[in-house]
């Protein structure tokens, strides 16, 4: 591209334009940061669905502000004709395609993630073996906080190929499972009813969702899976602990024996 053509594409930069560009960039940044802080502050005062709605709005608003800023900035930098836009976008596309392929892919996947919403702020997702709550959907990465209080940043480009398991999909509740392994000699119907009562009497329980007990007979005994929903997804680990502790106590009070791993299996493990 010759120098004369380039000067036609780009506007003349004087101090006024540069200041204007800087002001727009600073204003957009401040607006994004301020809005995200405000939304998180508001969400901290709310619970359930309202909290998740607010958190999910953050990336949408950020995208809207970025697009609006670009729409204002581009005419300041180049003469906004069709020819100029094609030339500029073509050059930028080439540069990104060769030099920053993964970065660009993550940015585009980030925009897709905002639209398709495979995960939102407040969702509990599992990607590549990492399970945690989505705390921030950024431009390039999604940040999750695991149960062990570790923050994991996952590039959005995982969206293209990797499966993403979302446990609550924008709902405040998600299903939790507490496992019980019992000696095979017992009244299965009574145990099933008892485990249902264990869930029904948990203070964490969300009553509008069903309680289920699934029984699997195994060579070593009976495997019970008690499934129920806590009021808030953030309570899931405490809920499972509560079900397990009270379930074990209730079973023990009725003299029901727990399964013990066979010696061979235990040593292999």
């Amino acid at each position: 591209m010759e120098t004369s053509q380039l000067t036609k594409i780009f506007n003349t930069f004087d101090a006024g334009v540069i200041v204007e560009l800087l002001l727009i960039a600073v204003a957009a940044t401040l607006l994004i940061v301020g809005l995200q802080k405000l939304l998180h502050w508001l969400a901290d005062h709310l619970h359930g669905q309202n909290r998740l709605y607010l958190l999910a709005m953050a990336p949408l608003l950020r995208l809207a502000i970025l697009i609006a800023s670009l729409l204002v900035i581009v005419p300041l930098i180049i003469e906004p004709s069709l020819q100029n836009m094609v030339a500029l976008l073509g050059s930028v596309g080439l540069a990104l395609g060769f030099a920053l392929k993964d970065y660009a892919s993550s940015l585009i996947a980030g925009i897709v993630a905002v639209g398709e919403r495979p995960y939102r702020n407040g969702d509990w997702i599992e990607v590549n073996g990492f399970y945690g709550e989505v705390r921030h959907v950024g431009m390039r990465t999604v940040q999750i906080l695991t149960a062990d209080d570790t923050q994991v940043s996952i590039p959005h480009l995982r969206l293209w190929n990797d499966p993403i398991a979302n446990a609550n999909c924008g709902r405040p509740q998600l299903q939790c499972v507490a496992d019980f392994y019992l000696h095979p000699e017992h009244d299965a119907a009574a145990v099933k009813a008892l485990l249902q009562d264990v869930a029904l009497t948990s203070p964490y329980l969300h009553y509008q969702d069903p309680i289920m007990v699934i029984v699997h007979e195994q060579p070593w005994g009976s495997h019970y899976r008690l499934k129920a929903y806590p009021i808030d997804a953030r309570q899931q680990f405490r809920f499972i602990s509560d079900l397990t502790i009270r379930g074990k106590a209730a079973l023990a009070r009725r003299g029901i024996r727990f399964a013990v791993a066979p010696v061979t299996a235990a040593t292999t493990a």
Partner: peptide, 14 residues
């Protein structure tokens, strides 16, 4: 008069 005192939210209280 007090059905609320005839149960406990406990696995053995229902």
């Amino acid at each position: 008069p007090n059905l609320e005192q005839c149960y406990l939210r406990h696995a053995d209280g229902l």
